[in-house]
């Protein structure tokens, strides 16, 4: 999927001299942060509305990929690779939708026209959690396991936006795309992984001796 995204981006930029911008994302303890959404907004040229497609698969009661970044207007399909049904929904303001119980590829694709974070859940499987970040720029990507991403963009000034599911705030900064440019972003403190929160209850022993 990611490869496809990149591919589209590359196609879009063939006509321009491209510069690779290396972005490094770390947390407050300088650990490389994967799955950080990195997007570059050109200050001058209006972004081109993409008509791309993306897939958010569901496999083993997990959204795959966990985090998906798409340009506004992208149509995302939600195939169900499990042999059970899922009920995918999102109450995020950027895109509210609901795909009622379905098997396989029966669900209609969803178009994400508005930029923002869309949190995906399954009404049947509470543990399922997925994120679709909708960005209004063709220049975007996810950091790899080393917390790195290299974006090839036409030279110029950009607004760099970095987000992460476990970081509330959006980190913004201005960068200039030129050869060998390298930006390091510290996203600060991470929030606990929602899926890692222990299901413990104190209710049983409230009044015990």
């Amino acid at each position: 999927m990611r490869a496809t995204g990149l591919w589209v981006a590359v196609l879009l930029l063939v006509s321009m001299p491209l510069r690779a911008l290396q972005v490094n994302v770390v947390d407050d303890r300088d650990r490389p942060l994967s799955n950080a959404i990195v997007a570059l907004y050109a200050s001058s040229a209006p972004p081109q509305q993409g008509l791309g497609q993306a897939v958010m698969d569901q496999r083993d009661r997990q959204f795959v990929p966990e985090v998906l970044v798409v340009q506004t207007g992208t149509e995302v399909t939600f195939p169900n690779s499990d042999d059970i049904r899922h009920h995918v929904y999102s109450f995020s303001p950027a895109k509210r939708f609901e795909l009622r119980l379905y098997h396989g590829t029966t669900a209609k694709p969803v178009t994400f026209a508005q930029a923002g974070q869309v949190v995906l859940g399954c009404n049947i499987h509470d543990s399922m959690l997925g994120y679709i970040y909708v960005v209004d720029t063709p220049y975007f990507g996810l950091t790899d396991a080393r917390g790195e991403i290299s974006l090839e963009v036409p030279a110029g000034d950009y607004r760099l936006e970095v987000q992460h599911p476990r970081v509330k705030a959006v980190t913004e900064q201005t960068v200039t795309a030129k050869s060998g440019a390298h930006v390091s972003v510290n996203l600060g403190d991470l929030q606990p992984d929602p899926r890692q929160v222990e299901e413990k209850t104190e209710l049983e022993t409230l009044f015990g001796p």
Binding site: F91, G121, D126, L129, P194, L203
Partner: peptide, 12 residues
Amino acid sequence: FVLSPIMAPLQI
């Protein structure tokens, strides 16, 4: 009171 978070799927 028993209070419980409303998860959708993150706490709302």
